[in-house]
Design a protein around this nucleic acid. Structure first.
Lengths: 327, 327
DNA sequence: ACTCTATGCGAAATCGATTTCATGATCAAC
DNA sequence: GTTGATCATGAAATCGATTTCGCATAGAGT
């Protein structure tokens, strides 16, 4: 816990010079050597708090996500972390539980801790970014939009929902249900829209909503919705799950009832990283979560560096990984 | 981004008084009102950096873990977060990838950002805590020990390994293998020791190491080890997986080969949160990860509050959840 | 030889809060 | 009525780094 003053005294220079040595400003070789030696002896580590206070910026970026227990978001986090690390930034992970209040708290903290920027997977479209924008901190949206004109990286959700559904159609399924997340969450809604478009084309007469379930983006939600669907007078012969956890829930229910895919067709928008199912039995539209994190982090770093071009939105596509029927 | 000085001026008081208002020190009612009103008008939020610098402590605790993509650790993180939140602390999650170097970096950051304390799942037993101890910051070990005499919360790993193995024995399996994590990681080693104890009792003549595989604590590791075991001249009829991800990997391989449990018996030390397998087919020794986080957070908060009783170690037990053979 | 520019470096100001210290006011006690 | 204790309050010091400013020295240009 040595300070710059103690190092200065030991090295026989001024504190300013010590600071210069550690910030790559021109200092004579002999003084550099003296300072480094003194710093080594005292185990000097610059106090980041003081540094941040003076410079009015820190090398920390906040990653604000709704569910840290969802592997999709941890994968995203890995992407962010890898890029940030390289650039000398550290990442603090903030879990909002999809609650606006917690989210607001973390955004305030980001401001008052002078964090360099924020990557935000918004809890809803109600998120208020006025304060953080007023503070001049860059924000990059991931996974979901925010209603503000800021940089963002999103998935082609509608397309993904469509691809998943179409693949089930091609595989011969005829009564395809859809389980997705809360209706007010854009990703959930869009994926359902993709599903709906295919259904409408396929069987224009059917009431689409009969086989559509808005739920939570969690395993429980998938289980409940799947059970509801199976209890219908005329149950579906296939289902599209709107995210990884819904897929897990749905498949759990199916497995328990002996309806293991492909007996009942399952397509998931997202990956099943820890599935113990034979990987070939379920159709996936894999979402490049890590890549989303990487892209967002790069954009944020550019903004932090002062880039002020107009806001960009990057759209990433999922990759269809079809189930192989015979395995 | 108003400062305390601006608030003071607007309210017609000194900055000291503004600080007092926000820290619950006695101030006359009228001045309190004036300050609050001024703060409201200016949207004043205290600058945490300045506060931290002056007070030499912050309301942030670091949670340092080896693998943020492992649901075991995210569950632990949830436990920590919930308790910390209640107490007004925020948690920053630091992912070390099981690399000593990254871990050391994060520990340095914890010091130089004046974080209030650290909860650490050590990357190995080589972790150096000298600096952070010298800085007087409390550290609580989770999941794994550290070689230092500090508070800790660990699982009864040996017992868990034993329970998992015994259950397979009772279920009638006779050639039980074990896949565990890196030998130098205490949890991996201990769980294997539990397995070994049962095997030694059961078949004293057998060479235990033939059926023991040290691997990584990841899905890949489980896959590889399982494949190796199946390729043996005399393959096992059951396997104990040393953690959740190894279990996933092993089961994946088995499923691909039509050896779905319980055809080949599987017991996992840990949970399979996102398994799509019928939950009853695999024996689990569930580890209370969330509870571990909760306990660790409470201990850390006590230390932060100044508690200096001798170091405590809390041992949590896994809970056997037997596979039901007929389902 | 003389100006001009560049460069190294120390003194001191600065970031924004907290906290110590001193002051003056209020009130109870004797 | 004096002493003493208590309390609200402001001025100023403080936390530890960065950065501005100004000075002194060195080297380049004519």
């Amino acid at each position: 816990m040595a300070t710059i003053y103690e190092v200065a005294k030991l090295a026989g220079v001024s504190p300013a010079t010590v600071s210069r040595v550690f910030n790559g400003v021109a200092v004579s070789d002999e003084k550099v050597a003296a300072v480094r030696e003194a710093a080594r002896q005292l185990k000097f580590t610059p106090n980041r708090t003081a540094r941040t206070l003076r410079k009015q910026e820190s090398e920390v970026i906040a990653l604000v996500i709704p569910d840290i227990e969802n592997p999709y978001f941890t994968e995203l986090a890995r992407g962010v972390e890898d890029i940030a690390q390289e650039a000398g930034f550290s990442v603090v992970l903030c879990n909002t539980d999809a609650q606006l209040e917690k989210e607001a708290t973390y955004l305030q903290i980001a401001i008052s801790e002078h964090m360099a920027g924020v990557i935000l997977a918004a809890a809803s479209d109600q998120t208020n970014l006025d304060d953080i924008q007023a503070a001049g901190r860059p924000v990059v949206a991931v996974d979901r939009g925010t209603g503000y004109d800021i940089d963002g990286v999103i998935m082609a959700n509608r397309t993904a929902g469509q691809a998943a559904t179409e693949h089930l159609v091609r595989a011969g399924y005829r009564r395809i249900a859809c389980i997705t997340g809360p209706q007010l969450i854009e990703t959930a809604y869009e994926r359902a829209q993709g599903w709906r478009a295919v259904i409408a084309r396929q069987s224009p007469d059917a009431d689409p909503d009969e086989l559509l379930r808005y739920s939570t983006f969690r395993v429980d939600g998938g289980r409940e919705a799947m059970e509801e669907l199976l209890a219908l007078p005329e149950p579906p012969d296939a289902v599209v799950a709107g995210n990884n956890l819904l897929g897990v829930g749905a498949i759990q229910v199916l497995t328990e009832r002996g309806l293991t895919p492909p007996k009942l067709g399952v397509a998931v928008v997202g990956s099943l990283p820890f599935t113990t199912l034979s990987p070939s039995a379920v159709t996936l539209v894999r979402l490049p979560a890590r890549h989303m994190g990487v892209t967002a982090a790069k954009m944020l770093l550019e903004r932090i560096a002062g880039d002020d071009q107009p806001a960009r939105t990057v759209v990433l596509r999922g990759e269809l990984q079809p189930a192989r029927s015979a395995d």
